[in-house]
Amino acid sequence: MSFLKNFFSREVLIYSKKSSNVISPVIFFLICITFFPLAVSNDPNELSKLAPGLIWICILLAGMLSIQTIFKEDYDDGSLDLFYVRGFSMLEVVLVKIFVNWIFTALPLILLSCSMVFLLYFPVDKLFNLIGSLFLGTLIISFFGALAGALSLGKNSILASAIMLPLSLPVLILGSSASTYSNENITFFILLLSALLFFSVPIISLACVGAIRLHYE
């Protein structure tokens, strides 16, 4: 428990001191979301239909900026070596790193997307659907992104994107559908996203541990 607490505090401190980790995805998200109405259409009806998909695509792309390099710094500076030397649980390391990354990168984007709905004429009555699906979806994407990052350690970041994009497609489809359909049908999509998250947490975390270990073989 003391390792978990100590490691969590360390990760929070690192993220809070490295503002680029938080600001870069936010700036990217803001640029994308404000450029779409200017480039595509300024018709409220059209924008309102496109809004869930736009928000989801922008969040997915913005999130990709940081999640793929989640283990890179620890691998490059030798911190991962130390965890192996002391025999710390790599599963705990992976879970803490993904969760802290989600708090500092995905959570601000979710909060920001709430304010962006007015720009895109998104129906306010579906706002909770959007937020709910984003909470679940961004967590799943964080796990997929971490796996892509673990598999591509020490290699070109294009590999991480190539791994992550197909994995994220089901989440993107389910998430944007959950934000689009009426309140009666939302339960189905939220349940599917919850199930996906439920299976992703143990399976993808263990896959991350294995993928990191591969780089030490």
Binding site: I14, K17, K18, D77, G78, S79
Partner: peptide
């Protein structure tokens, strides 16, 4: 190790 495992920031 050869690397110091220090965090730059």
């Amino acid at each position: 190790g050869h690397k110091n495992a220090l965090k730059d920031n």
